[in-house]
Design a protein around this nucleic acid. Structure first.
Length: 906
RNA sequence: GGGCUCUUAGCUCAGUUGGCUAGAGCGCUACCUUGACAUGGUAGAGGUCAUAGGUUCGAGUCCUAUAGGGCCCACCA
């Protein structure tokens, strides 16, 4: 039999068990009609990604849920996979090309896409390997990628169906344009932040008069594209200008002055320059007034050939500077104000977004949003914490169309085909397109150049990963999935859209019963959504690469162990609150793992001592020779099982962790293990010792299984050592069920009494600085018979836990003279300390306790003296106060008595 | 501008439907290498629960306002 090391060494354990679990396919889910499925789909990490603390939190939580449900007998299926991350991945490969001195335009689309695939094969799996280090129990046989064949088919299918339904349209609109990526991005991909900018006031001469119009703008360079000036129709100051023309400074172009309700007379000068091609509001105004849309930029954000020569080719911000300078020199700049305003940036590269007029594809969201809003409002999908439903509701009710086209090469190419005459349609392939367009087989078609937004494949994830559009048995069985665990920042990008997609595309697909799905509860993609905390650093800053404040989880695992990291993160992450993390905090988890390890080691050593290496039967609870400690730990165990279960049912992983910690450390290790020693090292018979160790192991076995979802490695390792079940794994063992009959308040009260006595004696030792090497005796004046009996039966506990040589029950008249004393639950304890006692210290101890009790009694007295309280408060509460009063008074009298007694001595 | 959220020991946080003698971990002080563990044990110090009102017999817990953090949404040039 192998020796167990003195401290837990995760490195010796983790990789070994993970390989074992994986090779035995313990995480693989199979359709099983006798079992209820429990399914989670992973939020697919980007293939460019590396493991972050956010992933750690997210995946730990998912693993806790899936392991817990698996142990509860569900067919637990966790579908892993990765996301192709259009912009991100294209960037990475473009950077690699740049190093080689080439770029994507030189090598061409086909070769570029090939390169990205090569890159993906080489590096794309990093995060998946890293996740395994965390111990996650994904069903790796089901791993998917958003661009693999099945999922690409699903994307095409969805596009064509939406197109045919009229829910996808193409048009020239102002979109958010990222000049760095040279693509449109969706509204949700723009991040707004306040910046200290300037507000430039520019004057435009009114044509044919000496009057001036003064407009205020934060983006003076766009004036080159102005095609009007607008005022509010009821603004008396400017009514006279409506219908006239202004002359654009520098350019000299004439533009009309129009009236529009949009203009806020109170802002700036009350006159607005209108640039329909470069501002969303101006665009709408332009539509209303039939204004020219004058595009002054190219796709990189440089001014194009439509502007005066001196600005052509300049970057937009360079141009801004020059224009301001020129305006100033030519006397057109009236004033410059400091101005705080919002600027939108690309969420991937932080480049300032340019509103840009271009041809894009959109999805009409209103019809899809309606049923998706309904199921959340009706509670068919529950959000945890619940407050996110409000956020969701608000976004859903104000939902805007989704710009899905991206001017990239890496991604799902838009399945739209154009005939030579310009007509177009969406189709699954070219052949279908020709049929739909009604052209001959030989007619050459051109496929749209753009690709789809990455989220256009992610929103299909809960069903595309299970084989949709095919009617597969997996799809019937595992969809709807159960719990989605995700960060709240993608509630709109992903969560909301998955709900829409599942509702739309699963309609009519056969369900578990083989019948077409119609009911909302069968059409939802999942039933519960757990929104995780955001992981921040110890100063509360969001973890980010640029700040360098994000510890590498692999380093943390290497230093503290995966279980330690998992436990710490689970313990620190309350549902819906941010979590401040730093790697030192993992000491909490590491120390806990070590504590468990050593508790196991203790049991292991004693088991070998008592019964050799023979296997012990732990299939049932050894129910004989139960003493108080046994009954107590069984009560505590079942209480803990109940609490852990309830916490997990409620998605409160931090509470579950706390219950485990308290039970294992404080109840089991601090008390039970110590109490059990009195029997292991006492003069019990071999048979009794055997029973006692079996029972201790039985309890520990339950604790390990309770712990397994959050700390899979250490629980498995110990479970294997202690339970001699080498053929099985804790992964598929049964999650403990609480046995209510073992929860016993009476036992817990008795034990609390013993604990109070022990604590009081320890306190005497501590306060009087009596070293453990010094033997003491305790004289007890017990208040009633029951207490006497408990003290008699369990005085071995007191001997062991306070290093007391004898506990003597005495009568009141036999109180020792020079003794330190305490009063606990009405009994008096005396520790004779002739020669050791410092009377001042002792007096202060007693006085402090007397004072404390007197304060309590004052409060209670006030309460009980108030007829409002005794009349109105519930009977139990009043009764409880009375009992407290009596107990405090009894203790107080004795304390005062003992204090006097002490003073007599001198 | 609208919405959400937080403020409890030096630090990080628990505190369930109002009944509390306000807890834990870290840190701190003292003692202890006692036959699982110093990644440990025992004892101790440390809090007018952000502030001001209100509801109530009773408020850390509910309501209102204020202050200060954080987040999200929104087209004010």
């Amino acid at each position: 039999m192998k020796e167990l090391s003195k401290t837990y060494n995760p490195k010796e354990v983790e990789d070994r068990w993970y390989a074992e679990w994986e090779s035995k396919k313990l995480f693989h889910a199979r359709i099983n009609d006798k079992k209820t499925p429990y399914t989670i789909v992973i939020p697919p990490p980007n293939i460019t990604g590396i493991l972050t603390m956010g992933h750690v939190l997210n995946n730990t939580l998912q693993d806790v849920f899936i392991r817990w449900k698996r142990m509860q007998g569900y067919e637990a299926c966790w579908i892993p996979g990765t996301d192709h991350a259009g912009i991100g991945t294209q960037n990475v490969v473009e950077r690699a090309l740049a190093k080689e001195g080439t770029d994507r335009h030189k090598i061409g689309r086909e070769r570029f896409v090939e390169r990205v695939w090569q890159w993906k094969e080489l590096y794309g799996g990093t995060i998946i390997t890293q996740l395994r280090k965390l111990g996650v129990s994904c069903d790796w046989d089901r791993e998917r990628f958003t661009m693999d064949e099945g999922l690409s088919n699903a994307v095409k299918e969805v596009f064509v169906r939406l197109f045919d339904k009229g829910l996808i349209y193409r048009g020239k609109y102002i979109v958010n344009w990222c000049p760095f990526h040279r693509t449109a991005i969706s509204d949700d991909e723009v991040e707004h932040a306040e910046v200290n900018g300037k507000l430039w006031h520019i004057r435009y001469q009114i044509d044919g008069t000496k009057d001036f119009a003064v407009v205020a703008t934060t983006r003076p360079e766009t004036m080159l594209g102005d095609t009007a000036i607008a005022v509010h129709p009821h603004d008396d100051r400017y009514k006279k200008f409506i219908g006239r023309f202004a002359v654009l400074p520098i350019v000299g172009r004439r533009i009309p002055i129009i009236a529009d309700d949009f203009v806020d007379s109170a802002f700036g000068t009350g006159m607005v320059k209108v640039t329909p091609a470069h501002d969303p509001n101006d665009y709408l105004m332009g539509q209303r007034h039939n204004l020219e849309q004058k595009n002054i930029m190219d796709e990189t954000g440089r001014l194009n050939e439509s502007v005066p020569k001196q600005y052509e080719g300049m970057d937009r911000f360079e141009a801004r500077k020059k224009i301001v300078k020129d305006l100033e020199e030519q006397g057109f700049l009236v004033k410059t104000e400091e101005h705080v305003h919002n600027v939108g940036r690309c969420y991937r590269c932080n480049t300032i977004i340019e509103p840009y007029l271009s041809d894009q594809w959109f999805v009409k969201m209103k019809p899809l949003g309606k049923p998706a809003l309904k199921v959340v409002r009706e509670g068919k999908i529950r959000f945890h914490p619940d407050r996110w439903t409000k956020v969701y509701d608000h976004w859903m009710t104000n939902i805007r169309d989704w710009c899905i086209s991206r001017q990239l090469w890496w991604g799902h190419r838009i399945p739209v085909y154009y005939a030579p005459d310009g007509t177009y349609t969406a189709a699954r392939d070219e052949k279908e397109a020709k049929a739909k367009l009604g052209v001959s087989d030989s007619t050459p078609l051109r496929q749209d150049d753009d690709v789809l937004d990455t989220w256009f494949s992610s929103w299909l994830w809960p069903f595309s990963t299970l084989g949709w559009p095919k009617d597969t048995s997996d799809l019937r069985y595992f969809n709807p999935t159960d719990t989605l665990v995700t960060a709240p920042d993608i509630i709109f990008f992903w969560v909301a859209r998955m709900i829409m997609a599942n509702m739309e595309f699963m309609k009519g697909m056969p369900g578990r019963d083989g019948k077409p799905r119609q009911k909302d509860e069968d059409l939802v993609p999942f039933r519960d959504v757990y929104f995780t905390s955001i992981v921040r650093d110890s100063q509360g800053r969001k973890m980010s690469k640029s700040l360098g404040n994000s510890p590498d989880p692999l380093d943390v695992i290497s230093e503290y162990g995966a279980d330690a990291l998992r436990f710490t993160v689970g313990y620190l992450a309350p549902l819906g609150q941010d979590v401040l993390f730093s790697s030192e905090k993992c000491e909490l988890g590491r120390n806990f793992a070590n504590k468990i390890w050593n508790a196991g080691r203790f049991l292991f050593l004693n088991k070998n001592e008592i019964c050799g290496s023979d296997p012990l039967d732990l299939s049932s609870l050894p129910d004989d020779h139960l003493d108080l400690a046994d009954r107590w730990i069984l009560s505590r165990l079942n209480n803990s099982i109940r609490n852990v279960q309830a916490s997990l049912d409620d998605f409160q992983v931090n509470d579950a962790s706390r219950h485990l910690y308290d039970f294992i450390w404080h109840d089991f290790c601090d008390w039970y293990v110590e109490l059990v020693k009195t029997r292991f090292y006492g003069d019990e018979s071999a048979a009794v010792k055997r029973t006692v160790i079996r029972r201790a192991l039985w309890v520990f076995d339950h604790a390990l299984r309770l712990l397994h979802p959050i700390m899979p490695f250490v629980s498995e390792e110990l479970w294997q050592h202690l339970t001699e079940r080498n053929e099985e794994s804790i992964v598929r063992s049964e999650f403990p069920k609480a046995d209510a009959r073992r929860i016993d308040a009476e036992t817990e009260r008795s034990m609390a009494f013993v604990q109070n006595v022990i604590n009081a004696i320890r306190n005497i030792r501590g306060e009087n600085n009596i070293p453990p090497s010094r033997d003491i005796v305790v004289d007890v004046v017990a208040a009633h018979k029951e207490q006497k009996e408990i003290l008699q039966s369990y005085d071995a506990y007191i001997h062991k836990l306070c290093k007391v040589t004898s506990v003597n029950q005495i009568s009141k008249s036999q109180k020792p003279k020079l003794a330190s004393s305490a009063v606990v639950d009405g009994i008096e304890l005396f520790v004779p300390l002739e020669g050791l006692i410092d009377l001042d210290v002792e007096r202060k101890r007693l006085e402090k306790e007397i004072q404390r009790l007197e304060q309590m009694l004052e409060g209670i007295g006030k309460k009980l003296g108030n007829p409002q309280f005794t009349d109105r408060a519930p009977k139990e509460v009043v009764e409880k106060e009375r009992e407290k009063k009596e107990a405090f008074e009894a203790n107080l009298d004795k304390l005062k008595d003992n204090l006097l007694h002490l003073q007599d001595v001198r």
